[in-house]
Simulated scan of single mutants.
Amino acid sequence: MSDFLQLQGKRALVTSGTRGTGAATVALFRQLGAQVLTTARSRPADMPAAMFVAADLTTAQGCADLAAAARDRLGEIDILVHMLGGSTAPPGGFAALGDAEWAAELDLNLMSAVRLDRALLPAMVARGRGTVIHVTSIQASLPLPEATTAYAAAKAALSTYSKSLSKEVSPKGVRVVRVAPGWIRTEASVQLAERLAREAGTDLEGGQRIIMDALGGIPIGRPSSPEEVANLVAFLASDRAATITGAEVVIDGGTIPTA
């Protein structure tokens, strides 16, 4: 793999890189030769301090602190991967979402990327090179109204913002690409499947089937693994993808039907 794909000498900032798909991306980037800095609210015991910055990216101050640390530790940044995302909103449809819930979903899924881009892209543009990857979601076009209305709306906003940004900075040498995963088998998604299984009186496989049915089915019959999504992110970040910009690449096992 390294013969075909290399990130040797690249300096990368990957947000939310301590678990799930973020951790898989950090590991793969390092394997391919990149110098990687990542962030979360707290550092896991097995994460080297030299490659970690503690920051709350749902706040403007947290984004500013991370940007400053990234410039200090990496100098120039070649690859910026916005992996951070998720939902803390309660179930119950639109009526369960007050202003605080909406603001939290937007700060987590949209504004963290907007603020970091605003801080770090000018240097990429000045050098005339760099790659930004925004991790969106198929829920931008396939929302689940009972539980993910605000999350889906925030990811849709991230996708539109990313497309506009690509049109602005691609002529200046900076590529901007979106990766839209479907269901990924992470620790959090397994916990969700286990909860659904308990509520339905079934086993883990039954809980996973509930999730797949809610999505309208996954033709390949399973979720993606974090490592599979990381493979796509690494390819798009590499020089092998030098003419890919402004695109949204879906990795969902065929969940979204297309003509």
Score class of each variant (00 low, 15 high):
P91L: 05
P91S: 11
F94L: 15
F94G: 04
A95R: 04
A96G: 14
A96D: 11
A96S: 15
L97V: 04
G98A: 08
D99C: 02
E101T: 14
W102M: 07
A103C: 01
A104C: 04
L106G: 06
L106I: 15
D107W: 07
L108G: 00
L110G: 03
S112V: 06
S112M: 09
A113Y: 04
V114M: 01
R115L: 13
R118T: 15
L120F: 10
L120G: 07
L120M: 12
A123N: 06
V125W: 03
V125S: 08
G128L: 15
G128I: 15
R129F: 09
G130P: 10
V132M: 09
I133V: 13
H134I: 03
V135K: 03
T136S: 05
S137M: 01
I138A: 03
Q139H: 05
Q139T: 12
A140W: 03
L142H: 15
L144G: 02
L144S: 07
P145Q: 06
T148W: 00
T148S: 03
Y151N: 04
Y151G: 03
A153M: 14
A154L: 04
K155H: 01
K155N: 01
A156V: 11
S159V: 00
S159K: 02
T160P: 02
T160H: 03
Y161L: 10
Y161I: 12
S162D: 02
K163E: 11
S164N: 10
P171N: 14
V174R: 08
V174K: 07
R175A: 09
V176W: 09
A180P: 09
A180W: 02
G182M: 00
W183T: 11
I184H: 09
I184L: 11
T186Y: 01
T186D: 09
T186L: 03
A188C: 07
S189F: 02
S189E: 11
S189T: 15
S189W: 01
V190E: 13
L192C: 05
L192S: 12
L192Q: 14
A193I: 11
E194P: 06
R195G: 14
L196I: 12
L196P: 08
A197T: 11
R198P: 05
A200Q: 14
A200I: 13
G201S: 05
G201C: 04
T202A: 07
T202N: 02
D203G: 09
D203Y: 00
D203I: 03
L204T: 01
G206E: 00
G206N: 00
G207D: 02
I210W: 14
I211C: 13
M212R: 13
M212V: 01
